[in-house]
């Protein structure tokens, strides 16, 4: 049983040498179906399989049972026990050919039509609301791990993986983009579900702009770029117990978001600002975002 993964799937191509290790596209030998194989090597010490692996994989399996349309399907989990010291855990996901990054790059000249963006956003938020209601925080949401099927269905991928990997991989310098990180993460304050909403806001803007909203090259630079748009938050919103202090940044007032995302309509801009709210407690939740008039307006115009 434990060996099955190796025999059931034959590798087709390497599809990602991402920060979290190599990902393979593979074919299920019997059905011919394509899958994405992601493996983690786990050190099995004298206490057996590490707690974090047991928990994270159990969580992914639990989410799987709900079969949510906007969450990538985890088809199988295999544990290959190579030696007494090392275990390889392979997660078998459904394979979706393109991610949102490619999808945006491939869109013809003026970019995606507004109704398409609205639909993608609604699906994205549906998936997110599902994860959040199950107490799962993605933590690393970016166009590369939002998949879009050929029929335009959005599927969130790699959620929870960030944690599985970070626990076990003593990796060569991990390059994780800062561009979608919310202020509380950059400031190393506490964070929970609102983290993903910030990233979703950045992605929302990017769908119109077809290039990222905030491209910082360090934590401080990233924060500076954020404050250029949303303005420097008032002292009382600045988190306590963080090393970076508010007066390290020059006072700056917010600029209209339409300067950065000119194509967005009024309701869209309103929603975007609610997602790009500095204070995580005041940032809109995925559930509430779905109730935003921006989505109802689209129903009227399209319906």
């Amino acid at each position: 049983m434990a060996q099955e993964c190796g025999f059931q799937y034959e590798p087709v191509a390497e599809i990602g040498g991402g920060a979290y290790g190599t990902v393979y596209k593979a074919r299920h030998v019997e059905s011919g179906q394509f899958v994405a194989l992601k493996s983690v090597r786990v050190q099995t010490d004298q206490d057996g399989l590490p707690i974090s692996t047991v928990r994270e994989v159990a969580l992914l399996k639990r989410l799987e049972q709900f079969d949510h349309p906007n969450v990538v399907k985890l088809m199988d989990v295999c544990a290959t026990f190579r030696t007494d010291q090392e275990t390889k855990v392979t997660l078998v996901f459904e394979h979706v050919d393109q991610d949102l990054k490619t999808y945006l790059e491939k869109a013809p000249a003026p970019g995606l039509p507004p109704s398409r963006i609205c639909d993608l956003m609604r699906q994205l938020l549906c998936g997110l609301a599902f994860l959040h209601s199950n107490r799962v925080v993605h933590r690393d949401l970016k166009p590369e791990n939002i998949l879009v099927t050929s029929r335009g269905q959005v599927k969130l991928a790699d959620f929870g993986l960030a944690r599985i990997y970070s626990c076990h991989m003593a990796l060569t310098p991990v390059v994780v983009t800062l561009w979608y990180r919310p202020p509380e993460v950059l400031l190393q304050s506490t964070y929970a579900t609102p983290v993903d909403i910030w990233s979703t806001g950045c992605i929302f803007a990017e769908m119109f702009r077809r290039k990222p909203l905030f491209c910082g090259d360090s934590e401080v630079d990233q924060l500076g770029k954020i404050f250029n748009v949303i303005g420097l938050p008032p002292e009382e919103e600045w988190p306590a117990d963080v090393t970076l202090l508010r007066h390290n940044f020059s006072p700056i007032s917010p600029r209209p978001i339409t300067d950065y995302v000119p194509e967005i309509n009024d309701l869209g801009a309103e929603l975007l600002l609610e997602m790009l709210t500095f204070d995580p407690l005041r940032r809109i939740s995925a559930l509430n975002a779905l109730e935003h008039p921006y989505f109802q307006e689209d129903e009227v115009t399209n319906g």
């Binding site: 994989v57 159990a58 969580l59 399996k61 639990r62 989990v77 544990a79």
Partner: peptide, 8 residues
């Protein structure tokens, strides 16, 4: 392995 990691 037999429980397929479903321990929730």
């Amino acid at each position: 392995t037999e429980l397929k990691f479903e321990v929730s």
